[in-house]
Simulated assay, not measured.
Amino acid sequence: MTIQTRKPTNKPSWPVLLLAGAEKAGKSYSCALASASPKIGRTLWVSVGETDPDQYGAIPGADFDIVEHDGTVRGILNVLVEIASLPPEEKPTLLVVDSMTRLWDMVTDDLQATANARAKRNGRGGEQGITMDLWNRGKGMWRHIVQAINAHNGPVLLTARLEPVTVMDDKGKPTPIKAEKIKTEKSLPYDVDGVIQMPERGKTIISGLRSVVVQLDGPTEFPSFTVDGLWSSLGLGEAQHRRVSEPAAAQDTDEAGDE
């Protein structure tokens, strides 16, 4: 077997950025403001469990289309796959998914409903624990969602909620210390190219960034943050199509298992 190789292009690709913020910290506003950037053309906004961003259309320069869907996880995945298949335009299309917190909640809610339905068929009532096979199914659905997002040929902005949690000591007991935690599927911060935290309105911290242009020693505050400003800092004038080496997906042989 002859292996196939290629040389690196040395050019950055449009990043997938996760904007994780406290309530009313400005996550959605920042996404709407990004749609005014001269670097991009069209913006497609997929709203999940959040108030549709109609009012943000009044922001000077903001220009986005709200993508309608049927409100199911499968329907949202289908929309994301369809967006990824759109032909490239003169300027890249920005994809906004608001919010990934609610999307993961929907996945887990579906798993809970399936667990309860299984128990009811077996003569047991009440809320049941989610079994490992169902968690695997949910994780598989989430992988499909992330793959569809990564397949988009352009910049991506994802939002999530940032919530304070109690830090536990080495004995598993709660301490008075609070830490900020991103409320979503736990692997998402690793799957994106950058994590921007907004613990309060007007304060923005870049907690992680995949870039050879902007080198960070640790979480770094970004005064007067805008997405367009970050794009400029990353040198995205000649950004290329994002390449992701995805493993081949396992085949689901139990599609009709549980309703």
Rank of each mutant, 00 (worst) to 15 (best):
L157Y: 09
G172H: 04
A148P: 05
A179P: 01
K183C: 04
V156M: 09
V156G: 10
P164R: 04
A151E: 04
P164T: 05
S211W: 03
K203D: 08
K171L: 14
G202D: 11
L158T: 06
G202P: 09
N153L: 00
T159S: 05
M168H: 01
S211P: 07
D217K: 14
E163C: 02
I145V: 12
L209K: 13
V192D: 04
V214F: 05
I205G: 05
L188T: 10
R210S: 06
D191I: 00
L162K: 05
K171V: 05
G172Q: 03
V192C: 03
M198R: 10
K183A: 15
Y190F: 15
T159Y: 06
G202C: 11
T166A: 14
I177W: 09
G208N: 08
Q197H: 02
Q197S: 13
I196N: 12
K183H: 08
E163L: 15
N153M: 03
Q197A: 12
K186P: 01
E180L: 15
E163D: 12
M168C: 00
I196E: 03
I177A: 14
A160F: 13
Y190W: 13
I206Q: 00
I206V: 14
G194L: 07
T184V: 15
P155G: 12
I145E: 01
L162C: 00
D191T: 03
D170N: 14
D217F: 12
T159G: 11
G202M: 07
V192M: 10
P155E: 03
T166F: 01
G172T: 11
K178Q: 15
G208R: 11
L209R: 07
T204Y: 13
G202H: 07
